[in-house]
Design a protein around this nucleic acid. Structure first.
Lengths: 116, 116
DNA sequence: TCGTTATTTCCAGAATTATTGAAGCAATGA
DNA sequence: TCATTGCTTCAATAATTCTGGAAATAACGA
């Protein structure tokens, strides 16, 4: 993850509607939720939602798959981890000022090792 | 952390200059860096930097202290953790789709327990 | 083929944000 | 007191973004 990608991801999340959509999908799990159901659950007009889904997708935060007339959107968990790792990277210059934050910075590395 | 606060924090970070400032301060540690030095290191005009520091501070992501004519800015680590916890909260509905991301969601709770 | 459903694209107006020159303020030292 | 330094505020412009009505596309069932 580079700075430009991080800004795009953060900008995508920095909006009430999109943040609500993203959190809904993070909690929904990898199988995702159809666009129409997101629209219903969060009470967002279809065209407005479509605009926001596109923004989140372009930022790499969402994945989608089509099933018949439905398009299922799911959180891109690995991308979320990358973003968190980028934010917390080299916290306190590798020192131990706040060990818990340090642990967060290693998410990406742990994932790389575990290959879930 | 509520949704409004999270949007404010994300919006503050969703800008190249501010993200660079924040990451610089995350890496610099709790003692912080004077505004003038940030300006020099990142080559940002003083007034532009001041505007961005204010934005980050208002979002709760920065703390500052005055020492003589200098103002030292430091990352608000706890706030950063709160934001990460908010993003990853209840990932996959508490399931184990991606255990590593799950762990990230517990940062806030771990900090609360450890009282660093 | 025709109507319905699911989703997206187009468009235009309203609102927000980034940038920078200039001016202001506060702390310091001579 | 005066000049200097460090930082912030003000003001104006330029650019970007959000929203929702209307129309388009695409999949499905009758």
């Amino acid at each position: 993850m580079n700075s430009t990608d991080a800004v795009a991801a953060l900008a995508a999340l920095a909006q009430e509607t999109r943040l609500a959509v993203f959190r809904l999908l993070v909690q929904a799990g990898p199988s995702g939720v159809a666009a129409g159901e997101i629209s219903t659950r969060l009470d967002i007009p279809a065209n407005t939602l479509s605009f926001h889904l596109k923004t989140l997708s372009q930022a790499g935060l969402l994945e989608s798959r089509q099933e018949g007339r439905f398009i299922y959107y799911a959180a891109a968990y690995a991308r979320m981890d990358d973003l968190i790792a980028f934010l917390t990277d080299n916290c306190c210059n590798g020192g131990s000022c706040l060990p818990k934050t340090e642990q967060v910075a290693t998410v990406e590395k742990r994932r790389a090792g575990s290959a879930a």
